[in-house]
Amino acid sequence: MADQSSALMDVIGEIKDASEGKDTVEVGQLIDALDERGYGPALAVLPLIELTPLGGIPGFPTLLALLVAILALRMLMGYAHFWAPNWLRRRDLGASKVLKSVEWLRPISEWIDEKLHARLSRVAGPTGQKLACAVILCLCLSVPPLEVVPFATSAPMIVISIFGLALLYRDGLLMLLGFIGAGIAAFAGANLFFAG
């Protein structure tokens, strides 16, 4: 197994390299920067971007959820590489905002790289990955209606990121925590829906 001691920081570095020296960066350029590293890094980092200043842009959480859903669906179908429609790939983001988000994520990424490692790897194997993809798709569907509630989209994005980190580090314990988190989020969402 490849050394994972700086796995997340390497991904953050790829996003930074794709954004530096530009006024704007296309979503497609960020996708291409992550593509060679596989689905785990993309599913770990993209949802975390929702917690940064970019997440405050109206419609951005839904756009991010759509991108994550496309990646999860392709992973579930067994495709090796990412894909996104051209209209999504051509969407521009301010490079300064992307770089600010990268700097915001850097200390968190360093801490995660220090703490996470492979354990209970069979849980994060092919069956666990397929189940995780199905749950991620359900979580993505919850994001658009949650945009009307301030900060509510952060909950499903955090759970998606947990699944991504579990895939990145082959951490079955973290994947189990992701399933528990998804269950709690579903229960809370159902209570909120039926109470309203």
Rank of each mutant, 00 (worst) to 15 (best):
Q4G: 15
Q4T: 15
Q4N: 15
L8R: 01
L8C: 09
M9V: 11
I15F: 03
I15S: 01
K16W: 04
D17H: 05
D17M: 07
S19K: 01
E20I: 10
E20W: 05
G21T: 04
D23E: 15
D23N: 15
T24H: 14
T24P: 12
Q29T: 11
Q29M: 14
L30K: 00
Y39S: 04
G40Q: 06
P41G: 02
A42Q: 01
L48M: 12
L51P: 06
L51F: 03
L51H: 03
T52F: 05
P53M: 06
P53Y: 02
G55M: 03
G56Q: 05
I57Q: 13
G59C: 10
L63C: 12
L63K: 08
L71W: 01
L73F: 10
M75E: 10
M77P: 08
Y79V: 01
P85E: 05
N86L: 10
N86K: 11
L88D: 10
R91T: 13
L93A: 11
A95W: 02
S96R: 03
L105P: 01
L105V: 01
I108F: 15
I112R: 05
I112H: 07
L116D: 11
A118H: 06
A118T: 08
L120V: 02
L120I: 01
S121N: 10
R122L: 08
K130T: 07
K130A: 15
A132F: 07
C133G: 03
C133P: 01
L137M: 12
C138H: 10
C138E: 09
L139F: 01
V148F: 08
S154W: 04
S154R: 03
S154E: 10
M157T: 02
I158H: 00
V159C: 07
L167C: 12
L167W: 09
L168C: 11
D171G: 07
G172I: 00
L173H: 08
L174W: 05
G178T: 01
I180G: 15
A182F: 06
I184G: 07
A190V: 14
A190H: 14
N191C: 13
F194M: 11
